[in-house]
Design a protein around this nucleic acid. Structure first.
Length: 259
DNA sequence: ATGGTCGTTGGACGA
């Protein structure tokens, strides 16, 4: 089973990229973030033609998450809001597939350290951690994936000194990430590639992609049970190099789920 | 240099 995460920065603006990438990679499941569309306007038809069905939790203009599942895969137990948090922002979508609980998140960006949005980000992460503590008791195979808007360590940052204590890299954000790891979740790309930066996001400005001035903020965290099934995890930079790309690259993990 | 470039909008705002 191959599962991907991709912040597409508008699912409608990225339809051609998504179609081409699905045809080339044929993943089983794709967790999307920043779909930026209300559910009534989600483009189900092109994904159906591509052989995928979409579970969605969207809103107008901002945020929005979706899970694309290869036709024939049974999806159950959909949850479209982060339980326990009264939040109009669409940032959470959980499904179960092939015995794996998949939790797709678009963690708040946080804007600036010390801002209201930053406080919201830390609060949102605290609620996510609390929810997952209960989920993990019920699901030995759990995958938490999405755009975390946190670069966990300096290796995940092109210029750690320039980013020191800035949003995406600040100590409280990294501490919130370590709280997720403390639940028993492992950062799969980092576990398989201890020395590779693995950037997944590059700012649109200043030719950041061409200069490889990126951050690794799009992550897959897995339980030990699922980590034992993991065979590979890679960042696919191909779509980021195309015309009119998302500012994020997809990250793909392969699992041998066995029985 | 406190900038830049996108997407959604139809002027800013968010990232």
């Amino acid at each position: 089973m191959r599962i991907a995460t991709w912040n597409v920065n508008s699912v409608r603006a990225r339809l051609d990229h998504l179609r081409d990438w699905l045809a080339a990679e044929q993943p089983d499941l794709v967790c999307l973030q920043e779909t930026k569309v209300v559910d009534a306007d989600f483009p189900h038809e092109p994904f159906g033609e591509a052989g995928y069905r979409a579970e969605i939790s969207g809103q107008k203009s901002y945020n929005g998450v979706a899970v694309l599942a290869r036709a024939g895969l049974e999806i159950t137990d959909q949850v479209r809001d982060l339980p326990g948090l009264d939040d109009p922002q669409r940032r959470f979508l959980a499904v179960t597939v092939e015995g794996v609980r998949v939790v797709n998140v678009y963690v708040p960006n946080g804007s600036e350290v010390g801002s209201d949005k930053y406080a919201y980000k830390l609060d949102w992460l605290a609620h996510l951690t609390g929810h997952l503590r209960a989920e993990l008791a019920a699901h030995p195979r759990l995958l938490l994936t999405g755009d975390f808007n946190i670069a966990p360590a300096d290796l995940d940052v092109h210029d750690p000194d320039a980013w020191r204590d800035k949003v995406l890299c600040s100590t409280p954000e990294r501490a919130a990430f370590h709280e997720l790891e403390a639940l028993g979740l492992r950062d799969l790309f980092r576990a398989l590639h201890p020395d590779e930066p693995g950037f997944s996001w590059w700012d649109y400005r200043m030719n950041a992609f061409r200069r490889d001035r990126g951050l690794r903020i799009d992550l897959l965290l897995v339980t030990d049970d699922l980590a034992a099934c993991a065979r590979a995890c890679r960042v696919d930079r191909t779509p980021r190099g195309r015309e009119k790309p998302s500012d994020h690259a997809p990250v793909v993990a392969s699992f041998d789920l066995g029985g």
